[in-house]
Amino acid sequence: MLDVFLFATLNGLVTGLLLFMLASGLTLIFSMMGVLNFAHASFYMLGAYFAYSISSYLGFWIGLLLAPVIVGILGALVERYGLRHVHRHGHVAELVFTFGLAFLIEELVQFFWGRDTKNYQQPDILDFPLFTLFGQEFSAYRGFMIFISVLIFIGLYYLLTRSRIGIIIQAAITHPHTVASLGHNVPLIFMGVFGVGSALAGVAGVIAGPVLTTFPGMAVVLGSIVFVIVVIGGLGSLAGAFIASLLIGLLQSYAIASDLGMQDLLALLGVSFERSHPLNDLWTLTLPQIAPILPFLLLVLVLIFRPTGLLGKREE
C-alpha cells in the first residue's frame, strides 16, 4: 500500500512539475496580453519534435539546448506578425486566432514529420534506475525531469523578482502605459515574454517527449489540461498555477494508481445493485476509469463555485 502511494506521489510530482512548466508560460502570457493562448501546448509539441529531429543528428543534449531556442523564436514571430495584427479585432478574434494556430500547427507537424509516433528516446546516460524502493525502480530520467523543472522555476523566480528585466516585466503587466512613458519598449517586452513562455513550453516538450511519447496528438492531450490548471489556479496567478499543477498531477496519479470505485462507496453505504440495473455503467465506475475526466470535473466545479480560481484576483 505504502509503495503504491509513494510511487503515485513521485509520478504525480513529475507530471505536476511538467504541467507547471507549461502553465507558467501560459499564465505569464495571459497576465500580459489578457489572452489565453490555445496554441501554447502546440509549442510544447514543437519542442518535442524539434528535439527529436536534432537529437537524431547531434544527440539529446544539443536538442535540449537548441529546440527551446527555436520554439522561442517561433513564438516571438507568432506574437509579432500574428497576434499583434489580430489584436485590433478584439479579444474573441485573438482567442480564435490562437485556436486556429493550434489547429494549423498540428497539421504542419503531420506534414513535416508524418502521422506516426516518433521514436524519441531518452539519452543512454540517464537510462538507469535512480533508486529502488519496495522492489520498484524509479528511473533516473524522471529524476532528471524533476531536477530540470525545479532548476527552471528557481531561475524564473529570480529573473522575475530579483532582476531589472523582471521588475520591468512585472510593471508592464500592471501599468503598460506608465512603463512605456518611462521609455521602455513595451511591445518588445510583450514579444519577449511570449517568446520565453513558448520556449518554456518547448523545454517541457523536449523533456516530456521521450516519456509521454512524441506523436501529433500530444498537444491536444496536454493542452486542455494546462488550460484547466491556469483557470483553476486563478487566471494570471503564478502561485495559483503552481498549486493547481501539483494538485492535478497528484490527483490524476492517485486516481490511476487506486483500485477504488463506486462499488466500494456503495458497499460503504450498504447499497447494492443488480448487474441488469439500467445505470449499471454508473454503479461500476472505478477511479482509474474517471482519472482522465477529473481535471475537467474540477474545472467546472471551480468555475461554478469560485469563478476566480484558487488564487485569482477579483473579477472586473
Binding site: 482567442l95 488550460f227 449499471n280 455503467d281 482522465p292 475526466i293 475537467f296 467546472v300 468555475l303 461554478i304
Partner: peptide, 25 residues
C-alpha cells in the same frame, strides 16, 4: 460571458466526450 463561459464550455465538452466512452449503455 467571455473567458469564463469559454472555459466552462471547453470543460463540459471534454467532460461529456470522455463520459461518452464510459457510459456504454
Amino acid at each position: 460571458a467571455g473567458t469564463v463561459f469559454a472555459m466552462i464550455s471547453l470543460g463540459m465538452g471534454e467532460l461529456i466526450a470522455a463520459s461518452s466512452l464510459i457510459f456504454v449503455d
